[in-house]
Design a protein around this nucleic acid. Structure first.
Lengths: 203, 203
DNA sequence: CATTTTATATGACAGCGTGTCACAAGTCAA
DNA sequence: TTGACTTGTGACACGCTGTCATATAAAATG
């Protein structure tokens, strides 16, 4: 979290700083970004940066969370628009994000957050279950799966199912680590979510 | 990917290096890890490290992928054991990973991979949809959702449903970025997966 | 209004880590 | 033995980070 000094800043100066930071974090992923570039761009002395933020990551997550807040507002309004149907709301939200990506700069920051590290790590997990339809390993594993039990309607459904279970398992693992959940709770969460996946989220 | 020089190394030296790298990456997340520590520990000159790996990340992902391979083998064997039922297989796998976590050192590397950055970024996304049951925002949004449409059986199911759709949406977004998919394909994938979620993965 | 107290600004600097490069030392085939 | 090629080595230039002593401004006090 930025320090209070940051919030006490005159809006003008704060905006300059934010813009400079945004520019840097749009340019490269966090681990390549440099404070030197930010302060140079913003025209503030190096020491000042540390007056406002703990470090690079602090500034980065501040910006990312601001983005998050905006999206949340959007999600709320879409939920209202679609009379509380999360799938419809999510659908429109996703569509809108895709549009923004192809156009503007504003998604570059998110892009840099998701690619690099995050993606690479997720990839390793995906490969654990060979959920990559292009790989031979996928065929090998697909052959092992009892497909009669699964709700396969379209051609690539098996692939998507693997993607889904991997994503949810991954999420569970991250949560277990992050919150240091006791094993029973972690397992209970996992089982519940897998059951929801099996039976469907809709009535 | 490690350079060929690395694979040409005598097993003994390679193992020393791997162990030293493992130690460092278990100690701290990648971005805090230092090559200096690895080479000091392994007793090899700094220059040699660059003979074998492109850089820090290269070494890290090499180790992580090795872990991934082992898990994949385990998954395959579990699939066989459970006669092709992915849910049963996944279940046992998850259980086993939980056990390992509480015991040994071998999960620390994965832990460091998942926490830091990955987790922080996922968190921002989770918050977009306020899928955190402790937050007030969750209640606010929960109230907006038409729960009659959802397959809610147990108390926290709504929370888990939010978790699931967020995880899957997140995964889709990452993939769109990483593979630079055309919008139609990205949207198509997304819609298919959401439909699978709605209707359930099991017959 | 003068003075003390508190908050903010500044930039030089120590310290550290990275990646490179010129040179040394091996390996191997002819 | 020689030459061609591969691998080993560690000093070093470069850049970046976070700090700190000092300067400046702003606010509080009486």
């Amino acid at each position: 979290m930025p320090k209070t000094t940051f919030y006490n800043l005159h809006q003008e100066k704060r905006d300059t700083l934010i813009e400079a930071a945004e520019k840097e974090f749009c340019r490269v992923p966090v681990f390549e970004a440099s404070i030197s570039n930010i302060v140079k761009e913003a025209g503030v002395p190096r020491g000042s940066f540390y007056q406002y933020f703990e470090n690079k990551e602090d500034a980065f997550f501040y910006l990312l969370k601001e983005q998050g807040k905006k999206r949340q507002e959007l999600f709320v309004s879409l939920l209202k628009k679609h009379h509380g149907d999360i799938f419809d709301a999510l659908n429109e939200m996703y569509e809108q994000m895709l549009k923004e990506m192809s156009q503007g700069e504003n998604m570059k920051l998110i892009r840099n957050a998701l690619l690099h590290v995050t993606h690479e790590i997720e990839d390793v997990f995906t490969e654990m279950f060979a959920a990559d339809r292009k790989k031979d390993k996928f065929r090998e594993i697909a052959a092992l799966i009892d497909q009669d039990k699964l709700n396969l309607k379209e051609d690539h459904d098996l692939f998507h199912i693997m993607q889904i279970v991997t994503a949810v398992a991954f999420r569970n693992l991250v949560e277990k680590f992050a919150k240091d959940l006791p094993d029973e709770e972690a397992m209970d969460n996992f089982v519940r979510e897998m059951n929801l996946l099996k039976n469907g989220l809709y009535k």
